[in-house]
Amino acid sequence: MGVEPIKAMEHAIGILGLQVLIASLCVTPLRTYARINLFKFRRALGLIAFFYIVLHLLVWLLLDVRIPSQIIADLYKRPYITIGMAGLLLLIPLAITSNRYSIRKLGANWRRLHWLVYPAVALGGIHFVILRKGWQLEPLLYLTVIGVLLLIRVPMARVIPSRARHT
């Protein structure tokens, strides 16, 4: 992990969380455009991403900053931390309701609730871009991929309900 293990862990776990979250967003377009069905892995991907992102937060809280006053100040004074934290908060209801009982209980509202993953992943991508010095290529690539995955859902969202109406 090099000579600065805390930052190395914080970054590696954060990127891993973002990658798995992005992977979970690939499931639907893969089925729509490539006819590859990975639906049975989608919940696992979402939960693994959530797990990594919580771990990322814990490294930041318990190993990196540790000073409560500074943590609180960072949360409202540092946009990249505010944004990252907002993304994580949006994922909490999704993690809690990722079980069969909730899906049954919430019905159509479950799908609506889980649209929160879109702003969450966008916030994660922005968090990554603005925590770096200058405009760096790697986080911008992640943000681009996220943008593409969100944009291709716009036509899907239009097509799928109309199809549903016809059948």
């Binding site: 190993l63 990196d64 540790r66 500074q70 960072d74 004074k77 946009p79």
Partner: peptide, 18 residues
């Protein structure tokens, strides 16, 4: 974007405070 009040000394390992 971040505080300059504290710093992490490289080489302290995983449990060293700022």
């Amino acid at each position: 974007r971040w505080t300059q009040a504290s710093e992490r000394r490289i080489g302290g390992g995983v449990f060293a405070p700022r």
